[in-house]
Design a binder for these strands. Structure first.
Length: 619
RNA sequence: GCCCCGAUGGCUCAGCAUGGUAGAGCGUCCGCUUGGUAAGCGGGAGGCCGCGGGUUCAAAUCCCGCUCGGGGCUCCA
């Protein structure tokens, strides 16, 4: 940004002609003047668009400094594009000037000439040594540090909230008064949320597991928080992705795919961005700047903006599995699969006509999320958050959610609305280090359909803004894997053998031939168990070692194949989940597997089915 | 962004306080072993001790800077 500040006896202007980009103004502003003032000619530049909040802070600081130096109170802001050769978009500047005026008006008398008009003007400059000053203001990420905090953060700090527990019988009590006996995990979640007590100074257990098991690993060749997935990890991830997509699809969402990067200068997006901390990756393409999406919101908003939607189409659901969403989290915030800079997020946005529609849809999606968590099989605790006024009007609705869930939940009640939503819930997984991480979530958004101009035609034929739900039924897929591994670890600590659900186990059945002559027989068995992931440890190792290797890989069914098996056709199976050994026929084996994998996706083995053919991905 | 910690064969780590020929286990390769429910035996190969500078006759080791990684704080739309 460039400014030219003139200490003036007076400035007068008069609008002569309107341009295409003109802001709407009152008749009274078409002609105005100010005496004894600092006239500030201002042009907003392209680079300023990186951060509106920082720009306002820096610019007003500069102007205040000059005003103090000259000891003037009155400030006249004059939008004047001609100071620069690389102006920002008119939309950005148009948004900037009123905010700039507002900021300076806190401690000065301020007037402003309108943006987007040709004007004639008269100015008298005092002509003393300090009367003509110019400044260049640069908004750089470095300067943002302490002073410039985005609107969203500021408002979050201002908002006070109170914490309660809502029980199944509908009673709402202060957290302090609730008896957590029998709800220890909820207590852990509550402590984490409220006090934020973060003791552990260790690496989360899932990190060692994900590396040792050759699922996922850090990638030193990329930015931190961008991981590499080995074949077994990729299998697990793909299965979860496929499953969540099936679930959401059969719920009635329409799947779409949208770009991963968006134009900083797109007027609607830039305005949205300025509501949030600058945590996005930026990408340069020629001299255009783009940001990598941090959710699927943008693409879906832009599609919905262009759609013609009737009330008959509601609720209308779009879904995308974002491969990837990007958030440039601060270095120290990153943690294994729990917190990443590039992550995979199933994201659904539902348009509904009104608050009644929003509530019934919210309820259905709440049930869908419960089912997901039950399938995943990890622990979870519920947080429900809303604005106080929303609760006052919807007590019964909120209570019905808790009844549906069948156990008490943590409630956070805000005095005023901190973000764009009036209500949300999340299901939080509590990990081995007693930290909580959100998985499923649904939010009722009352702001963005207007902001992004999403509309539908109601029964009266009018074009109106719907309400919108933001939903992730599963939460980030990476984080689901995190939860599965942490849960397995915790199970292991309690004495049960750690394992993944059968449908996600990279190897479901491992055959251990007692000598190499039995390998062909094992190959026949692999073929007979065709629709499952069965492999053969054909290496020339001792049986003990093969068993140990299979156990370390958490293989759910380990089958030793010797002469006895070849003759009888009965398999000697070591069942990980129960620790028992059982003899079963191939057909029984098949049935056992089939019963446990009904309704979930299948993918073939991600590696060669003979262990002797398998490379090591690490160590 | 701030504060702590770390970096040595493919992996996990020892060695570093007191400078003097670089070590182990696992894995890998080659032999032997053909076994019945969690580690059979022997041998070989494999190292710019993260990068750059300094101190020293001599640096994996001491000092400074950097890079990368992890954890904590803050943060988590």
């Amino acid at each position: 940004m460039r400014i030219l500040a003139l200490h003036s006896d007076f400035i007068k202007y008069e609008v002569t002609k309107k341009t295409k980009v003109a802001e709407e103004i009152d008749e009274s502003l078409k002609k105005n003047e100010m005496d004894e003032c600092l006239t500030v000619f201002t042009s907003v530049e392209k680079e300023d668009m990186a951060d509106m909040d920082a720009l306002i802070a820096e610019a007003s600081k500069a102007v205040r400094d000059i005003a103090r130096q000259l000891n003037v109170d009155s400030i006249f802001i004059y939008p004047y594009v001609h100071l620069t050769s690389s102006p920002s978009t008119p939309e950005f500047a148009k948004e900037f000037f009123p905010l700039f005026e507002q900021e300076l008006a806190k401690d000065h008398t301020v007037k402003r000439s309108p943006f987007g008009y040709y004007k004639s003007f008269n100015i008298s400059c005092k002509g003393h040594p300090l009367s003509e000053l110019s400044r260049e203001i640069h908004v750089t990420p470095k300067k943002e540090d302490e002073e410039v905090v985005s609107e969203a953060l500021v408002s979050e700090e201002r908002i006070t909230s109170s914490w309660h527990v809502l029980d199944v019988d509908g009673s709402l009590v202060d957290v302090g008064d609730f008896d957590f006996t029998g709800h220890e995990n909820l207590k852990t979640f509550v402590d984490y949320e409220i006090s934020g007590s973060r003791a552990a100074e260790q690496e989360p257990p899932h990190v060692e597991i994900m590396r040792k098991m050759e699922l996922v690993d850090y990638e030193p060749g990329s930015d931190s928080g961008n991981l590499r997935w080995y074949p077994k990890g990729t299998l697990i991830k793909r299965l979860l992705e496929q499953h969540i997509t099936n679930v959401v699809h059969s719920y009635g969402a329409m799947e779409v795919e949208t770009p991963i990067m968006y134009d900083f200068e797109h007027p609607k997006l830039s305005r949205y961005l300025h509501r949030f901390p600058a945590r996005q990756y930026t990408v340069l393409s020629g001299d255009k700047r783009f940001f990598l999406r941090f959710a699927a919101c943008f693409g879906q908003y832009l599609i919905k903006h262009d759609m013609t939607v009737s009330y008959k189409h509601l609720p209308l659901r779009l879904y995308e599995l974002t491969h990837y969403s990007f958030r440039r989290e601060q270095g120290g915030e990153l943690s294994g699969l729990r917190r990443l800079r590039a992550f995979t997020m199933p994201d659904m946005h539902t348009l509904v006509a009104d608050m009644d529609g929003a509530k019934s849809e919210f309820f259905e999606q709440f049930k869908l999320c419960i089912r997901w968590m039950e399938d995943l099989g990890t622990n979870f605790e519920t947080g429900i958050r809303f604005v106080r006024s929303f609760y006052e009007e919807n007590r019964e609705f909120v209570a019905s959610l808790v009844r549906e869930l069948g156990r008490p939940v943590l409630v956070e009640m805000w005095d005023e609305r901190p973000f764009y939503f009036v209500m949300k819930f999340e299901f939080n997984f509590v990990d081995a280090l007693k930290k909580a991480s959100a998985l499923s979530t649904v939010q009722i958004d009352i702001e963005n359909t207007e902001r992004f101009d999403l509309t539908y035609i109601n029964e009266a034929g009018e074009r109106v803004n719907p309400l919108m739900l933001h939903t992730s039924v599963s939460g980030a897929i990476d984080r689901n894997v995190f939860a599965l591994l942490e849960q397995a670890y915790m199970d292991g600590q309690k004495g049960t053998k750690p394992m993944l659900p059968l449908w996600l186990s990279p190897t479901q059945v491992r055959l251990l031939p007692i000598n190499e002559e039995l390998v062909p027989f094992c190959n026949d068995l692999v073929a007979q168990l065709g629709d499952f992931r069965v492999d053969v440890d054909d290496r020339s190792e001792s049986l003990g070692k093969k068993i140990r290797a299979a156990e370390k890989e958490w293989v759910p069914y380990i089958v030793v194949i010797g002469e006895k098996e070849r003759e009888s056709g009965l398999l000697s199976v070591r069942i990980r989940s129960t620790g028992e050994k059982a003899d079963m026929s191939v057909e029984q084996m098949r049935e056992t597997l089939r019963a446990q994998t009904a309704g979930v996706p299948y993918r073939p083995l991600p590696l060669p089915d003979h262990l002797s053919k398998r490379p090591k991905f690490r160590g």
